[in-house]
Amino acid sequence: MSTPLIPLLGRGVVAGAAAGLAAGLFSLFAAEPLMDRAIREEEARAAKEHAHEHAAATAQHHEELFSRSTQHFGLVVTAVVAGIALGVFFALAYALIHRRTPLANPWPRALVLAAAAFLAVALLPALRYPANPPGVGDSATVTDRQEMWLGAVAIGVLGLLLAWQVAVKLAERPVPVRHTAVAVTVVAVLAVLFLLPDNPDAVPVEATLLWDFRVLSIGTQALLWAVFGAVFGALGLRAASRPATAAEPRRETATA
């Protein structure tokens, strides 16, 4: 009973850890200076308000549980944990496709699926709710914002599946018909995405800092999925080049 699931999950975990580590280290050097700056500016704003009113102008980074350097480390850990967890879901989705067409070349398949995952869970949600640097975010609205964000991720995933299914169903039709139908689907998905309520929070951050942070946020996630697709695809090629029974040693390389 050769199940394809375990090796695929192993590839997802290894690729997810590698991708998370790459994204975490990249953002540690590229994005942390921005976040530190955003926090200093937030503190300056809070101090100013404090001097004015003296009231409880809830400065959100008031009581610090962790130092900034611990939070820097936490960024890398978070990226690795998220990478592994996303990698598991990727592997499950891959397994569903793989069981129908197990002989397809794993390299392009992994890259295409990783690009699709980036679109669904990173780019589409970010178009509606772009990332905000520290200093933005009202704790009173966080539950609403989480529901909105999860809604955007769900719309991204379902919308991508829908566009893919439209393309599959119209496979026999002329190419212009198929492409137009997919484009209309994408526009409809974007319309639904923008029906979601606006982020209610004020963004009292300098525009260039905000832009740089948002570009880095998208860039980090693009890097994560690019590394993920490449590692997952390469592991698939390696497994395919072996005798059919081979089960690759997975965990050992994951922790290295």
Binding site: G74, L75, V77, T78, A79, P125, A131, W149, Q221
Partner: peptide, 12 residues
């Protein structure tokens, strides 16, 4: 602990 990662990945 996950604070910076949440901001960077766009999580609320």
């Amino acid at each position: 602990f996950a604070h910076d990662g949440r901001h960077l990945f766009g999580a609320p």
